[in-house]
């Protein structure tokens, strides 16, 4: 029988496996152990992160390797950069990706550029795990999806898993990769269950996964949007439209070939991205296909994204902020005209 675990457990397992395998792997972040220096919490019941994702790690690996930090993102993310450059293999947790505002210099000007500026004489084997995503009623400063930000910066690798299986394999790959990887975890996916093998396995970067095969339209969907696209595809299928769903899994590097050959087959591209629409992963993928796959296209490229606004708090607004299956179906209708009316 295949084993089903949650996204959160998959992430936890990848960290535990890597820490068992390599003594140099350490974990730092705010309350990643929890209850530092609280006598009655030394072993049992420590928090294990605000969402419980790192629960149990301090019990197995101790406070020497699972390190609670002050609320000082510039401090500990910066420290993780040079801990990595000087011999450790740290995992640093940036609780919400929105907090990058407090430590962008350490990532953008230090970690991302050390190797290049030093003429290849340094490496930064650091993984920054961070939570993203709207739909949690967490409002404008705790709901953004900022992966395009990092994709823009040379020297960083950017990973966004959409399933528990991918999360574990990609996180193991990230931790043992010798470059600085920013690993995104959608907070609304943590409880999602899926099939995950017990042992260690790695999913290479720059390899998109075709989450659904189809002939009529290519949908490139990022992170949680893969599931939104799968719902839309089920509806479309009832009406004779077969969508191919591509999950890039890593935005940097990006698997251009898989996207281009799918569009070559279908002649149509929709990019679904819950991030804001300007200078985004969606525009980047659209530009890729416009540039290298223009001749394959039978219709203009469509993007289904959030609007150019911060994430609103009110449920009535957040629900329309996010891309939905309906919006994807509408985009398909628009691009196929009358031939594929649903």
């Amino acid at each position: 029988m295949t084993r089903q675990i949650t996204f959160s457990q998959a992430v936890n397992e990848a960290m535990a496996l890597s820490m068992r395998e390599d003594q140099d792997v350490i974990l730092l972040g705010e309350d990643v152990a929890g209850g530092a220096a609280v006598d009655h919490l030394q072993d049992e019941e420590a928090w294990g992160g605000v969402m419980g994702v790192t629960k149990g790690l301090v019990q197995e690996f101790g406070r020497e390797r699972v390190i609670d930090t002050p609320i000082a993102e510039a401090g500990y993310i910066g420290a993780a950069v040079t801990a990595a450059a000087t011999g450790m293999r740290p995992i640093a947790e940036l609780m919400f990706n929105d907090f990058i505002g407090s430590c962008l210099d350490e990532v953008m000007n230090q970690g991302a550029k050390l190797r290049y500026m030093f003429g290849g004489k340094a490496k930064v084997p650091l993984t920054i795990r961070t939570m993203h995503g709207a739909g949690f009623r967490a409002a404008a400063q705790h709901s953004q999806s900022l992966y395009s930000f990092f994709t823009h910066i040379p020297g960083l690798k950017v990973v966004i898993p959409s399933t528990p299986y991918d999360a574990k394999g990609l996180l193991l790959e990230s931790i043992f990769d010798d470059d600085l990887v920013v690993f995104f975890e959608d907070k609304t996916l943590y409880t999602m269950k899926g099939e995950v093998p017990e042992g260690s396995y790695r999913i290479p970067f720059g390899k998109a996964d075709i989450k659904r095969k189809g002939e009529d339209v290519t949908i490139v969907a990022i992170g949680k949007m893969v599931h939104t696209a799968i719902k839309a595809a089920a509806e479309l299928s009832k009406n004779g439209v077969e969508a191919e769903i591509i999950d890039p899994r890593t935005l940097s590097p990006l698997d251009e070939d898989t996207i281009l050959s799918s569009v070559e087959k279908t002649g149509r591209l929709i990019v679904v991205d819950e991030a804001n629409p300007r200078c985004s992963a969606a525009t980047d993928i659209a530009a890729l296909v416009a540039d290298k796959g223009f001749d394959y296209l039978d219709a203009p490229i469509k993007m289904v994204t959030a609007p150019h606004t911060p994430v609103p708090f009110a449920p009535s607004l957040e629900d329309i902020y996010l891309p939905t299956p309906d919006k994807i179906i509408k985009a398909v209708q628009e691009m196929t005209g009358s031939e594929l009316v649903i």
């Binding site: 609320i71 907090f99 407090s102 409002a139 404008a140 400063q141 009535s316 607004l317």
Partner: peptide, 22 residues
Amino acid sequence: GKGGSMHIADVEKGMLGANGIV
């Protein structure tokens, strides 16, 4: 309704907002 608990503000009262960023 756009801010919620973590962003309540009333500039006329001199209240420059709760804040989600420590």
